[in-house]
Amino acid sequence: MLAKRIQPMIFHARRLYVELMFQVMGRALQAVSEVDSEVKEEAQVLPEGFLFEMMVMPNGPSMIVEHTGLGRFRYHGDNAPRPVDLSIQFKHIAHAFLVLSFQEKTSVAFANDRMLVDGDVSYAVRMTRVLNRLESFILPKLVAERAVKEYPQNLHLPEKLVSAARIYLKVATNFVETVRP
């Protein structure tokens, strides 16, 4: 009985968590593209104006970033200014929660058919590498190892700490700027 009453609250909390994580990831993608040369190099191959979306099917939370050129991303919130070029779609909010709470690696989620790719698969592969790089930076190593297929061996603590601090600072600034009227 109690479980039945609590369940809607759990579902609501899960949805809020996924929405929040998308907001953090979107801003962090923008930040990491300003901080890390490897991410910039990966992103440079994407066409200018390329819109990338991660969303939960059918009309759940979403996150949209645009490649504005020279390897830079801009976070657009959950509103795409035009049809997106590449969409990675979780089949259910439960699957998005598994990935965004680091219970399931992104690569495993793909292998487990938790998500679909709508668009050019080669760009999806590239964006997955960017997301892995981002997660390796901003998550503690123990958590990052649960999120990415292999934690990069060449990412050492000083570089990680400095980059993570810069990314978090930019994310926080972006949050404040967005909230300000």
Partner: peptide, 8 residues
């Protein structure tokens, strides 16, 4: 490196 099968 951009081939889809590399994900798996």
């Amino acid at each position: 490196l951009d081939d889809g099968s590399i994900m798996f």
